[in-house]
Design a binder for these strands. Structure first.
Length: 460
RNA sequence: UCCCCAGUAGCUCAGUUGGCAGAGCAAGUGGCUGUUAACCACUGGGUCCGCGGUUCGAGUCCGUGCUGGGGAGCCA
Protein backbone atom coordinates (compact mmCIF):
# COMPACT_ATOMS: atom_id res chain seq x y z
CA UNK A 1 0.00 0.00 0.00
CA UNK A 2 1.28 3.41 -0.95
CA UNK A 3 1.61 6.23 1.53
CA UNK A 4 -0.62 9.28 1.22
CA UNK A 5 0.91 12.67 1.82
CA UNK A 6 -0.41 14.57 4.81
CA UNK A 7 -0.94 17.65 2.62
CA UNK A 8 -3.37 15.60 0.54
CA UNK A 9 -5.23 14.09 3.51
CA UNK A 10 -5.74 17.45 5.21
CA UNK A 11 -7.44 18.69 2.04
CA UNK A 12 -9.84 15.76 1.98
CA UNK A 13 -13.56 16.57 1.87
CA UNK A 14 -14.68 13.23 3.31
CA UNK A 15 -13.55 10.57 5.77
CA UNK A 16 -11.29 7.89 4.31
CA UNK A 17 -10.69 4.31 5.39
CA UNK A 18 -7.48 2.38 5.22
CA UNK A 19 -4.89 5.05 4.45
CA UNK A 20 -1.21 4.98 5.35
CA UNK A 21 1.00 7.92 6.26
CA UNK A 22 4.74 7.91 6.82
CA UNK A 23 6.60 10.69 8.57
CA UNK A 24 8.39 11.89 11.65
CA UNK A 25 6.93 12.27 15.13
CA UNK A 26 6.91 15.86 16.36
CA UNK A 27 5.38 15.08 19.76
CA UNK A 28 3.49 12.41 21.66
CA UNK A 29 0.88 13.10 24.32
CA UNK A 30 -0.51 10.25 26.42
CA UNK A 31 -3.46 9.81 28.60
CA UNK A 32 -4.47 6.59 30.28
CA UNK A 33 -5.75 4.41 27.52
CA UNK A 34 -4.62 6.29 24.43
CA UNK A 35 -1.89 8.39 22.86
CA UNK A 36 -1.86 11.35 20.51
CA UNK A 37 0.95 11.50 17.95
CA UNK A 38 1.71 14.55 15.82
CA UNK A 39 3.17 13.41 12.50
CA UNK A 40 4.89 15.61 9.93
CA UNK A 41 5.98 14.27 6.56
CA UNK A 42 7.37 17.50 5.09
CA UNK A 43 4.63 17.80 2.48
CA UNK A 44 3.24 20.81 4.34
CA UNK A 45 3.65 22.81 7.50
CA UNK A 46 0.78 21.16 9.31
CA UNK A 47 1.01 17.91 11.23
CA UNK A 48 -1.47 15.04 11.13
CA UNK A 49 -2.84 14.25 14.57
CA UNK A 50 -2.96 10.51 15.09
CA UNK A 51 -4.93 8.90 17.89
CA UNK A 52 -3.75 5.47 18.98
CA UNK A 53 -6.03 3.61 21.35
CA UNK A 54 -4.58 1.15 23.84
CA UNK A 55 -6.64 -1.60 22.19
CA UNK A 56 -4.41 -1.70 19.12
CA UNK A 57 -1.57 -4.17 18.78
CA UNK A 58 1.78 -3.33 20.35
CA UNK A 59 0.39 -0.38 22.29
CA UNK A 60 3.25 -0.69 24.79
CA UNK A 61 5.68 -0.13 21.89
CA UNK A 62 3.80 3.01 20.85
CA UNK A 63 4.39 4.49 24.28
CA UNK A 64 8.12 4.26 23.60
CA UNK A 65 7.90 6.40 20.45
CA UNK A 66 10.00 9.53 20.84
CA UNK A 67 10.12 12.95 19.21
CA UNK A 68 12.00 12.62 15.93
CA UNK A 69 11.19 8.96 15.28
CA UNK A 70 10.11 7.84 11.80
CA UNK A 71 6.84 5.92 11.70
CA UNK A 72 4.33 4.39 9.29
CA UNK A 73 0.72 4.56 10.43
CA UNK A 74 -2.28 2.83 8.89
CA UNK A 75 -5.74 3.94 9.87
CA UNK A 76 -8.89 5.86 9.08
CA UNK A 77 -9.15 9.57 8.41
CA UNK A 78 -11.97 10.85 10.60
CA UNK A 79 -13.36 14.19 11.62
CA UNK A 80 -11.64 15.27 14.80
CA UNK A 81 -13.89 15.83 17.82
CA UNK A 82 -11.17 18.02 19.36
CA UNK A 83 -10.44 21.66 18.65
CA UNK A 84 -7.59 22.81 16.43
CA UNK A 85 -7.83 20.42 13.51
CA UNK A 86 -10.51 19.26 11.11
CA UNK A 87 -9.13 15.78 10.49
CA UNK A 88 -7.29 13.18 12.51
CA UNK A 89 -6.11 9.68 11.78
CA UNK A 90 -7.45 6.90 13.97
CA UNK A 91 -4.66 4.35 13.96
CA UNK A 92 -5.20 0.67 13.25
CA UNK A 93 -1.50 -0.06 13.13
CA UNK A 94 1.62 1.88 14.06
CA UNK A 95 5.00 0.73 12.78
CA UNK A 96 8.22 2.26 14.04
CA UNK A 97 10.53 2.68 11.04
CA UNK A 98 13.38 4.34 12.90
CA UNK A 99 13.42 5.31 16.55
CA UNK A 100 15.16 8.56 17.64
CA UNK A 101 17.06 8.04 20.89
CA UNK A 102 16.89 10.66 23.62
CA UNK A 103 20.02 12.32 22.23
CA UNK A 104 17.93 13.67 19.32
CA UNK A 105 18.83 17.37 19.43
CA UNK A 106 15.52 18.84 18.26
CA UNK A 107 13.15 19.39 21.14
CA UNK A 108 9.49 20.29 21.39
CA UNK A 109 10.36 23.95 21.79
CA UNK A 110 11.83 26.80 19.83
CA UNK A 111 15.53 26.67 19.17
CA UNK A 112 17.79 29.56 18.26
CA UNK A 113 18.84 29.90 14.62
CA UNK A 114 22.46 29.83 15.77
CA UNK A 115 22.02 26.43 17.39
CA UNK A 116 20.11 25.06 14.40
CA UNK A 117 22.97 26.10 12.10
CA UNK A 118 25.20 23.71 14.05
CA UNK A 119 22.78 20.88 13.16
CA UNK A 120 22.03 21.90 9.59
CA UNK A 121 21.53 18.22 8.70
CA UNK A 122 18.48 18.12 10.99
CA UNK A 123 17.13 21.65 11.00
CA UNK A 124 14.99 21.05 7.90
CA UNK A 125 12.83 18.87 10.18
CA UNK A 126 11.67 21.95 12.08
CA UNK A 127 8.57 23.94 11.13
CA UNK A 128 10.49 27.07 10.22
CA UNK A 129 13.20 25.45 8.09
CA UNK A 130 10.75 23.10 6.45
CA UNK A 131 8.81 26.21 5.43
CA UNK A 132 11.95 27.97 4.17
CA UNK A 133 12.89 25.11 1.92
CA UNK A 134 9.40 24.47 0.59
CA UNK A 135 9.26 28.15 -0.38
CA UNK A 136 12.75 27.92 -1.88
CA UNK A 137 11.57 25.07 -4.08
CA UNK A 138 8.44 26.90 -5.23
CA UNK A 139 10.45 30.04 -5.91
CA UNK A 140 12.83 28.12 -8.16
CA UNK A 141 9.93 26.82 -10.15
CA UNK A 142 8.36 30.29 -10.36
CA UNK A 143 11.56 31.68 -11.87
CA UNK A 144 11.49 29.16 -14.67
CA UNK A 145 7.77 29.74 -15.18
CA UNK A 146 8.25 33.51 -15.44
CA UNK A 147 10.90 33.23 -18.11
CA UNK A 148 9.22 30.42 -20.02
CA UNK A 149 6.01 32.48 -20.21
CA UNK A 150 8.04 35.30 -21.81
CA UNK A 151 9.94 33.21 -24.33
CA UNK A 152 13.30 33.21 -22.56
CA UNK A 153 15.64 30.26 -23.04
CA UNK A 154 17.40 28.66 -20.06
CA UNK A 155 21.17 28.50 -20.56
CA UNK A 156 23.51 26.32 -18.50
CA UNK A 157 26.63 28.44 -18.33
CA UNK A 158 29.85 26.82 -17.10
CA UNK A 159 30.85 26.66 -13.46
CA UNK A 160 34.53 26.22 -14.34
CA UNK A 161 36.17 29.16 -16.01
CA UNK A 162 39.63 30.27 -17.10
CA UNK A 163 38.98 33.97 -16.87
CA UNK A 164 40.54 35.22 -13.69
CA UNK A 165 38.99 38.68 -13.47
CA UNK A 166 35.35 38.73 -14.38
CA UNK A 167 35.19 41.83 -12.26
CA UNK A 168 33.52 40.57 -9.13
CA UNK A 169 35.51 39.52 -6.13
CA UNK A 170 38.08 36.87 -5.28
CA UNK A 171 37.76 33.51 -7.01
CA UNK A 172 38.17 29.93 -5.82
CA UNK A 173 40.97 28.15 -7.65
CA UNK A 174 40.28 24.75 -9.16
CA UNK A 175 43.12 22.36 -9.85
CA UNK A 176 43.92 18.72 -10.47
CA UNK A 177 47.59 19.26 -9.60
CA UNK A 178 49.15 17.32 -6.73
CA UNK A 179 49.06 19.97 -4.02
CA UNK A 180 51.99 18.33 -2.22
CA UNK A 181 54.12 18.53 -5.34
CA UNK A 182 53.20 21.60 -7.35
CA UNK A 183 55.10 22.03 -10.63
CA UNK A 184 56.88 25.37 -10.82
CA UNK A 185 58.17 27.54 -13.63
CA UNK A 186 60.12 30.71 -12.89
CA UNK A 187 59.08 30.39 -9.25
CA UNK A 188 55.37 30.30 -10.04
CA UNK A 189 52.90 27.45 -10.37
CA UNK A 190 53.06 26.01 -13.86
CA UNK A 191 49.39 25.76 -14.80
CA UNK A 192 50.29 24.58 -18.30
CA UNK A 193 50.68 21.16 -16.63
CA UNK A 194 47.25 21.37 -14.94
CA UNK A 195 44.10 19.67 -16.22
CA UNK A 196 42.99 22.45 -18.55
CA UNK A 197 46.50 23.71 -19.26
CA UNK A 198 45.55 27.03 -17.71
CA UNK A 199 44.73 28.50 -14.31
CA UNK A 200 41.08 27.68 -13.60
CA UNK A 201 38.52 29.07 -11.19
CA UNK A 202 34.92 28.66 -10.09
CA UNK A 203 32.67 31.18 -11.79
CA UNK A 204 31.63 34.42 -10.09
CA UNK A 205 28.96 35.13 -12.71
CA UNK A 206 27.44 33.56 -15.78
CA UNK A 207 26.88 36.92 -17.41
CA UNK A 208 29.61 37.01 -20.03
CA UNK A 209 28.61 33.55 -21.28
CA UNK A 210 24.93 34.48 -21.14
CA UNK A 211 25.59 37.54 -23.32
CA UNK A 212 26.90 35.24 -26.08
CA UNK A 213 23.62 33.31 -26.00
CA UNK A 214 21.45 36.43 -25.83
CA UNK A 215 23.17 37.45 -29.06
CA UNK A 216 22.02 34.16 -30.58
CA UNK A 217 18.72 33.13 -28.97
CA UNK A 218 17.46 36.60 -28.13
CA UNK A 219 16.20 36.41 -24.57
CA UNK A 220 17.98 34.03 -22.22
CA UNK A 221 18.61 33.47 -18.54
CA UNK A 222 20.90 31.49 -16.31
CA UNK A 223 20.05 30.13 -12.87
CA UNK A 224 22.78 28.33 -11.04
CA UNK A 225 25.43 28.34 -8.33
CA UNK A 226 28.00 31.09 -8.08
CA UNK A 227 31.15 31.25 -5.98
CA UNK A 228 32.96 34.09 -4.26
CA UNK A 229 36.11 33.61 -2.19
CA UNK A 230 35.69 36.98 -0.51
CA UNK A 231 36.35 36.90 3.23
CA UNK A 232 32.90 38.36 3.89
CA UNK A 233 31.45 37.85 7.35
CA UNK A 234 27.97 39.30 7.20
CA UNK A 235 24.40 38.09 7.35
CA UNK A 236 24.04 38.81 3.61
CA UNK A 237 27.03 36.91 2.16
CA UNK A 238 27.91 33.28 1.56
CA UNK A 239 30.72 31.79 -0.52
CA UNK A 240 28.37 29.63 -2.61
CA UNK A 241 25.03 31.04 -3.61
CA UNK A 242 22.53 30.92 -6.46
CA UNK A 243 22.01 33.70 -8.92
CA UNK A 244 19.48 34.38 -11.66
CA UNK A 245 20.83 36.30 -14.64
CA UNK A 246 18.55 37.26 -17.53
CA UNK A 247 20.17 38.75 -20.62
CA UNK A 248 18.16 40.31 -23.46
CA UNK A 249 19.21 41.21 -26.99
CA UNK A 250 17.81 44.41 -28.51
CA UNK A 251 17.09 45.73 -25.04
CA UNK A 252 18.17 48.92 -23.31
CA UNK A 253 18.49 49.95 -19.68
CA UNK A 254 14.81 50.92 -19.38
CA UNK A 255 13.82 47.49 -20.68
CA UNK A 256 16.03 45.89 -18.02
CA UNK A 257 14.46 48.03 -15.29
CA UNK A 258 10.98 47.16 -16.54
CA UNK A 259 11.78 43.47 -16.52
CA UNK A 260 13.34 43.55 -13.06
CA UNK A 261 10.23 45.19 -11.62
CA UNK A 262 7.88 42.79 -13.38
CA UNK A 263 10.08 39.89 -12.25
CA UNK A 264 10.03 40.79 -8.54
CA UNK A 265 6.30 41.41 -8.59
CA UNK A 266 5.60 38.13 -10.35
CA UNK A 267 7.70 36.10 -7.92
CA UNK A 268 6.25 37.81 -4.85
CA UNK A 269 2.69 37.29 -6.07
CA UNK A 270 3.47 33.69 -6.97
CA UNK A 271 4.77 32.87 -3.48
CA UNK A 272 1.83 34.59 -1.77
CA UNK A 273 -0.49 32.38 -3.85
CA UNK A 274 1.44 29.12 -3.67
CA UNK A 275 2.90 29.18 -0.15
CA UNK A 276 0.41 31.02 2.03
CA UNK A 277 0.52 28.53 4.92
CA UNK A 278 4.29 28.62 5.09
CA UNK A 279 4.39 32.41 4.67
CA UNK A 280 2.02 32.83 7.59
CA UNK A 281 4.59 31.21 9.86
CA UNK A 282 7.06 33.93 8.95
CA UNK A 283 4.47 36.68 9.24
CA UNK A 284 3.60 35.40 12.73
CA UNK A 285 6.98 34.51 14.22
CA UNK A 286 9.75 36.08 12.13
CA UNK A 287 8.60 39.47 10.81
CA UNK A 288 5.26 40.89 11.88
CA UNK A 289 5.33 43.39 8.99
CA UNK A 290 6.08 40.78 6.35
CA UNK A 291 2.73 40.78 4.55
CA UNK A 292 2.63 44.59 4.54
CA UNK A 293 6.09 44.69 2.98
CA UNK A 294 5.20 42.09 0.35
CA UNK A 295 1.90 43.73 -0.51
CA UNK A 296 3.70 47.07 -0.65
CA UNK A 297 5.99 45.69 -3.32
CA UNK A 298 3.05 44.34 -5.32
CA UNK A 299 1.04 47.55 -5.25
CA UNK A 300 3.74 50.17 -5.83
CA UNK A 301 5.41 51.40 -8.97
CA UNK A 302 9.09 51.19 -8.10
CA UNK A 303 10.61 54.64 -7.72
CA UNK A 304 13.25 55.21 -10.39
CA UNK A 305 15.86 57.88 -9.93
CA UNK A 306 19.33 58.59 -11.19
CA UNK A 307 22.37 58.16 -9.00
CA UNK A 308 22.78 61.96 -9.13
CA UNK A 309 19.25 62.52 -7.81
CA UNK A 310 19.81 59.88 -5.13
CA UNK A 311 22.93 61.70 -3.96
CA UNK A 312 20.96 64.98 -3.89
CA UNK A 313 18.21 63.44 -1.77
CA UNK A 314 20.74 61.97 0.65
CA UNK A 315 22.58 65.27 0.95
CA UNK A 316 19.34 67.14 1.63
CA UNK A 317 18.04 64.53 4.06
CA UNK A 318 19.80 66.01 7.11
CA UNK A 319 20.19 62.39 8.14
CA UNK A 320 23.49 61.67 9.88
CA UNK A 321 25.40 58.96 8.06
CA UNK A 322 28.54 57.24 9.20
CA UNK A 323 29.96 57.73 5.71
CA UNK A 324 29.46 60.95 3.83
CA UNK A 325 27.59 60.98 0.55
CA UNK A 326 29.77 62.14 -2.30
CA UNK A 327 29.21 62.09 -6.07
CA UNK A 328 31.66 59.63 -7.56
CA UNK A 329 31.65 57.29 -4.56
CA UNK A 330 29.49 54.22 -4.38
CA UNK A 331 26.46 54.40 -2.13
CA UNK A 332 26.96 52.72 1.26
CA UNK A 333 24.54 50.17 2.70
CA UNK A 334 23.22 52.83 5.09
CA UNK A 335 22.47 55.18 2.18
CA UNK A 336 20.64 52.52 0.18
CA UNK A 337 18.59 51.48 3.17
CA UNK A 338 17.69 55.07 3.99
CA UNK A 339 16.32 55.53 0.48
CA UNK A 340 14.25 52.38 0.30
CA UNK A 341 13.17 52.06 3.95
CA UNK A 342 12.74 55.63 5.14
CA UNK A 343 12.59 58.12 2.30
CA UNK A 344 10.53 56.23 -0.29
CA UNK A 345 9.38 53.29 1.89
CA UNK A 346 9.17 51.05 -1.18
CA UNK A 347 11.45 49.44 -3.77
CA UNK A 348 13.75 51.89 -5.53
CA UNK A 349 15.74 51.60 -8.76
CA UNK A 350 18.84 53.76 -9.02
CA UNK A 351 20.43 54.16 -12.44
CA UNK A 352 23.27 55.94 -14.28
CA UNK A 353 26.11 55.37 -11.85
CA UNK A 354 29.56 57.02 -12.21
CA UNK A 355 31.61 54.86 -14.58
CA UNK A 356 34.64 54.70 -12.27
CA UNK A 357 32.80 52.53 -9.70
CA UNK A 358 31.34 50.07 -12.21
CA UNK A 359 32.74 47.19 -14.31
CA UNK A 360 34.10 47.42 -17.85
CA UNK A 361 31.14 45.84 -19.63
CA UNK A 362 28.59 48.53 -18.72
CA UNK A 363 27.59 50.91 -21.49
CA UNK A 364 29.06 54.43 -21.32
CA UNK A 365 26.38 57.15 -21.42
CA UNK A 366 26.61 60.19 -23.69
CA UNK A 367 27.93 62.34 -20.80
CA UNK A 368 31.01 60.06 -20.78
CA UNK A 369 30.89 60.15 -16.99
CA UNK A 370 28.20 57.66 -16.15
CA UNK A 371 27.26 54.16 -17.27
CA UNK A 372 23.85 52.67 -18.01
CA UNK A 373 23.78 50.69 -14.76
CA UNK A 374 20.91 50.07 -12.39
CA UNK A 375 20.48 48.64 -8.90
CA UNK A 376 17.15 47.58 -7.43
CA UNK A 377 16.91 48.22 -3.69
CA UNK A 378 14.22 46.72 -1.47
CA UNK A 379 13.37 47.32 2.20
CA UNK A 380 15.19 45.13 4.78
CA UNK A 381 17.65 43.74 2.23
CA UNK A 382 19.12 46.64 0.26
CA UNK A 383 20.54 45.69 -3.12
CA UNK A 384 18.75 42.67 -4.53
CA UNK A 385 19.37 43.19 -8.26
CA UNK A 386 22.25 44.75 -10.14
CA UNK A 387 22.29 45.16 -13.90
CA UNK A 388 23.12 47.29 -16.88
CA UNK A 389 22.91 47.86 -20.56
CA UNK A 390 26.09 46.29 -21.97
CA UNK A 391 28.69 48.16 -24.00
CA UNK A 392 28.10 46.96 -27.55
CA UNK A 393 30.45 49.38 -29.35
CA UNK A 394 33.71 47.58 -30.09
CA UNK A 395 36.06 50.56 -29.98
CA UNK A 396 34.62 51.92 -26.76
CA UNK A 397 34.68 48.51 -25.08
CA UNK A 398 38.32 47.99 -26.02
CA UNK A 399 39.28 51.47 -24.82
CA UNK A 400 37.53 50.81 -21.51
CA UNK A 401 39.34 47.50 -21.05
CA UNK A 402 42.67 49.19 -21.73
CA UNK A 403 41.80 51.93 -19.28
CA UNK A 404 40.99 49.38 -16.58
CA UNK A 405 44.03 47.24 -17.29
CA UNK A 406 42.17 44.14 -18.49
CA UNK A 407 43.78 41.68 -20.88
CA UNK A 408 41.98 41.84 -24.23
CA UNK A 409 43.67 38.57 -25.12
CA UNK A 410 41.86 36.70 -22.34
CA UNK A 411 38.53 38.12 -23.46
CA UNK A 412 39.03 37.66 -27.19
CA UNK A 413 35.78 35.75 -27.56
CA UNK A 414 33.78 38.35 -25.63
CA UNK A 415 35.24 41.11 -27.81
CA UNK A 416 34.40 39.17 -30.97
CA UNK A 417 30.71 39.34 -30.10
CA UNK A 418 31.05 43.11 -30.66
CA UNK A 419 32.99 42.58 -33.86
CA UNK A 420 30.42 40.37 -35.58
CA UNK A 421 26.86 41.61 -35.69
CA UNK A 422 26.99 43.51 -32.43
CA UNK A 423 23.63 44.59 -31.02
CA UNK A 424 22.51 46.60 -28.04
CA UNK A 425 21.52 44.38 -25.16
CA UNK A 426 21.06 44.43 -21.39
CA UNK A 427 20.64 42.19 -18.39
CA UNK A 428 20.83 41.88 -14.65
CA UNK A 429 21.71 39.52 -11.82
CA UNK A 430 19.51 38.72 -8.89
CA UNK A 431 20.69 37.01 -5.70
CA UNK A 432 18.30 34.11 -5.24
CA UNK A 433 18.92 33.81 -1.49
CA UNK A 434 18.48 37.55 -1.03
CA UNK A 435 15.05 37.34 -2.62
CA UNK A 436 14.21 34.44 -0.29
CA UNK A 437 15.25 36.60 2.66
CA UNK A 438 13.00 39.36 1.42
CA UNK A 439 10.05 36.99 0.92
CA UNK A 440 10.37 35.28 4.31
CA UNK A 441 11.73 38.05 6.53
CA UNK A 442 14.64 35.78 7.51
CA UNK A 443 17.54 38.10 8.34
CA UNK A 444 20.52 35.76 7.91
CA UNK A 445 21.33 34.37 4.46
CA UNK A 446 22.75 31.22 6.10
CA UNK A 447 19.20 30.29 7.07
CA UNK A 448 17.72 30.22 3.56
CA UNK A 449 20.30 27.92 1.92
CA UNK A 450 20.41 24.21 2.81
CA UNK A 451 24.07 23.96 3.80
CA UNK A 452 25.72 27.38 3.92
CA UNK A 453 29.37 27.87 2.98
CA UNK A 454 31.08 30.76 4.76
CA UNK A 455 34.69 31.50 5.79
CA UNK A 456 35.90 28.67 8.05
CA UNK A 457 32.65 26.77 7.70
CA UNK A 458 32.12 23.88 5.26
CA UNK A 459 30.59 21.19 7.49
CA UNK A 460 27.74 19.12 6.09
C1' U B 1 39.90 41.89 7.00
C1' C B 2 38.28 45.82 10.77
C1' C B 3 35.04 47.41 15.16
C1' C B 4 31.69 45.70 19.09
C1' C B 5 29.30 41.71 22.01
C1' A B 6 28.95 36.72 23.78
C1' G B 7 30.62 31.46 25.17
C1' U B 8 27.91 28.19 32.32
C1' A B 9 23.41 21.23 32.13
C1' G B 10 20.74 18.49 25.79
C1' C B 11 18.39 23.81 24.70
C1' U B 12 17.49 29.05 26.51
C1' C B 13 19.68 31.70 30.17
C1' A B 14 20.73 33.69 35.65
C1' G B 15 25.04 33.70 38.70
C1' U B 16 25.64 40.16 43.29
C1' U B 17 31.93 42.91 45.82
C1' G B 18 36.47 37.15 43.78
C1' G B 19 34.05 32.84 48.69
C1' C B 20 29.60 25.62 48.40
C1' A B 21 27.14 25.43 40.45
C1' G B 22 21.41 27.56 39.72
C1' A B 23 16.37 28.11 37.10
C1' G B 24 12.91 27.13 33.13
C1' C B 25 12.32 23.89 29.22
C1' A B 26 14.06 19.02 27.42
C1' A B 27 15.16 13.82 29.03
C1' G B 28 14.01 9.43 32.49
C1' U B 29 10.20 7.23 35.99
C1' G B 30 5.20 7.28 37.77
C1' G B 31 0.09 9.40 37.45
C1' C B 32 -4.05 11.24 34.49
C1' U B 33 -10.43 8.89 29.70
C1' G B 34 -9.84 13.95 23.96
C1' U B 35 -4.85 16.16 24.23
C1' U B 36 -2.94 20.77 21.16
C1' A B 37 4.97 22.99 22.56
C1' A B 38 -0.92 18.67 27.03
C1' C B 39 -0.92 18.61 32.38
C1' C B 40 0.79 16.93 37.70
C1' A B 41 4.72 14.65 40.86
C1' C B 42 9.54 12.79 41.42
C1' U B 43 14.66 11.65 39.50
C1' G B 44 19.19 12.01 36.93
C1' G B 45 22.22 15.57 34.47
C1' G B 46 28.37 20.30 34.64
C1' U B 47 36.00 19.93 31.28
C1' C B 48 31.58 27.11 33.75
C1' C B 49 35.03 27.23 25.45
C1' G B 50 40.85 26.01 25.46
C1' C B 51 45.70 27.51 27.33
C1' G B 52 48.53 30.65 30.57
C1' G B 53 48.57 34.24 34.65
C1' U B 54 47.06 37.18 39.35
C1' U B 55 45.09 35.43 44.19
C1' C B 56 44.65 31.86 50.34
C1' G B 57 40.68 31.17 46.81
C1' A B 58 38.63 32.48 39.77
C1' G B 59 32.37 30.92 36.37
C1' U B 60 33.72 36.02 38.03
C1' C B 61 39.93 39.69 37.26
C1' C B 62 44.23 39.95 33.35
C1' G B 63 46.63 37.97 28.72
C1' U B 64 46.08 34.87 24.56
C1' G B 65 43.74 31.51 21.19
C1' C B 66 39.25 29.29 19.23
C1' U B 67 34.02 29.43 18.20
C1' G B 68 29.41 32.06 17.54
C1' G B 69 26.57 36.67 16.88
C1' G B 70 25.82 42.04 15.39
C1' G B 71 27.83 46.01 12.37
C1' A B 72 31.35 47.76 8.29
C1' G B 73 33.92 46.84 3.72
C1' C B 74 33.40 43.70 -0.75
C1' C B 75 28.85 42.38 -3.28
C1' A B 76 24.22 39.25 -5.00
Amino acid sequence: MKRTRILHLLQSDKPLDNVIIMGWVRTRRDSRGFSFLEINDGSCLKNMQVIADSSIADYEEIKKITTGSAVAITGSLMESPGKGQKWELKADNVEILGIAPDTFPLQKKRHSDEFLRTIAHLRSRTNKYGAVFRIRSELSFAIHQFFKDRGFKYIHTPVLTASDCEGAGEMFKVTALDMDNIPKKDGKTDFSLDFFGAATNLTVSGQLSAEMFALALGDVYTFGPTFRAENSNTSRHVAEFWMVEPEMAFSNLTDAMDLSEEFLKYLTGYIIDACLDDLELFAKYVDKNLMTTLEGLLSSDFTRLSYKDAVDILNKSKQKFEFEVDFGKDLQSEHERYLTERHFKQPVIIYDYPKNIKPFYMRINDDNKTVAAMDVLVPNIGEIIGGSQREERLNILEARMDEMGLSKKDYWWYIESRKYGSAFHSGFGMGFERLLMFLTGVTNIRDVIPFPRTPNSISF
